[in-house]
């Protein structure tokens, strides 16, 4: 039985997928328990081969778990009641190469019991109407990706699963995709976004799950994952700067990075810090607020895991 909070739309419990048997067995996903809540943009992070796509495949019912459970909108993954309310783009778009973009979406519309108009609206949404009559095989990688997103969004699903949606897109297309995802969330749709583009995830996701070698290392809000902000101060003399910083933030929260004093303290304390430094006759050259990027956190998490594995 999956036990997660009532607001969850996707919930996995000890989700596991193993390929092969005996000594050749390989665990692609290892006891992953994660929750995607209603209306949020959830970023699913991990390097290539971490198990992101396999996990997503199990969520949409394409792959059967070896162990564990996955529920989507209260139904077992793959059940018709779940997939009708879910839109997915998993590991690149899969369309009939001989059909036009419009006809491909009309095929999808028929599967969903929608009218042809839904296909035209979906094409408009991803700005592909001008090339709608061209065969899918003539599309660029970015256009194929946009068509895949259009198909995933066609029936206004409650949950949208997008696996690397910005693959193949140019910078303009990536920005447009980000706006689209934010727009979906603003409209109340839940978005589960897998990506290895950490800036992209940091910019648009509410919560993230970090997966590495099949295991979910961490699941939390982006801000929690990045931790508190720090203040970086350059002042002379450095010794006085350090002393004042320790008074403000406490000895344990201050460290010296070259000539820069780093305080792990909220940015709101910057004015107080500046005032005290001046009062103590310190020449203040710079006070800046720094946040750890998601990329730094991600590499810390995965590197720690690799180090543990080596030891």
């Amino acid at each position: 039985m999956v036990t997660n909070d009532a607001d969850s739309v996707v919930a996995t419990t000890d989700l596991t997928k193993r390929y092969g048997r005996g000594e050749r067995a390989r665990t692609a996903v290892d006891r992953v328990s994660m929750t995607v809540r209603r209306g949020e943009v959830y970023g699913f992070l991990g390097p290539n081969g971490a198990g992101k796509t396999t996990t997503l495949r199990m969520m949409v019912g394409l792959v059967r778990p070896t162990a564990g459970q996955v529920e989507v909108l209260g139904h077992p993954a793959g059940a018709s009641a779940a997939t009708t309310r879910l839109g997915a783009l998993i590991e690149g778009p899969g369309f009939f190469p001989y059909l036009s973009g419009r006809d491909n979406l009309r095929v999808v519309a028929r599967y969903r019991g929608l009218s042809d108009r839904a296909a035209d609206q979906a094409l408009d949404r991803v700005d592909l109407s001008a090339r709608a009559g061209d065969r899918f095989k003539s599309y660029s990688l970015g256009m194929k990706q946009r068509l895949g997103v259009a198909a995933a969004l066609m029936s206004e699903p409650d949950v949208v699963v997008l696996d690397e949606p910005t693959n193949g897109l140019d910078p303009g297309g990536m920005a447009e995709m980000r706006r689209l995802v934010v727009h979906l969330a603003a409209g109340g749709q839940t978005v589960l976004l897998s990506s290895h583009l950490l800036d992209e995830v940091q910019a648009i996701c509410d919560r993230v799950g970090v997966i590495h070698e099949g295991r979910l290392l961490r699941e939390s809000t982006v801000s929690d994952l990045r931790g508190t902000t720090s203040l970086h101060v350059r002042g002379t003399p450095v010794e006085d700067t350090l002393a004042v910083a320790m008074v403000i933030a406490g000895e344990d929260q201050v460290r010296l990075d070259g000539a820069t004093v780093v305080l792990d303290t909220p940015a709101e304390r910057a004015p107080e810090l500046a005032r005290r430094l001046v009062e103590h006759g310190v020449d203040v050259h710079e006070i800046s607020r720094r946040e750890r990027s998601l990329e730094e956190v991600f590499f810390e998490l995965t590197a720690t895991k690799e180090l543990e594995a080596v030891q």
């Binding site: 997939t83 899969g94 009939f96 999808v108 599967y111 969903r112």
Partner: peptide, 18 residues
């Protein structure tokens, strides 16, 4: 090869219906 089963099987109809 085209990945269209993947698309088709995530549209709502069950595998039996598809």
């Amino acid at each position: 090869g085209w990945g269209t089963w993947k698309t088709v099987l995530t549209q709502g109809p069950s595998r039996t219906a598809t």
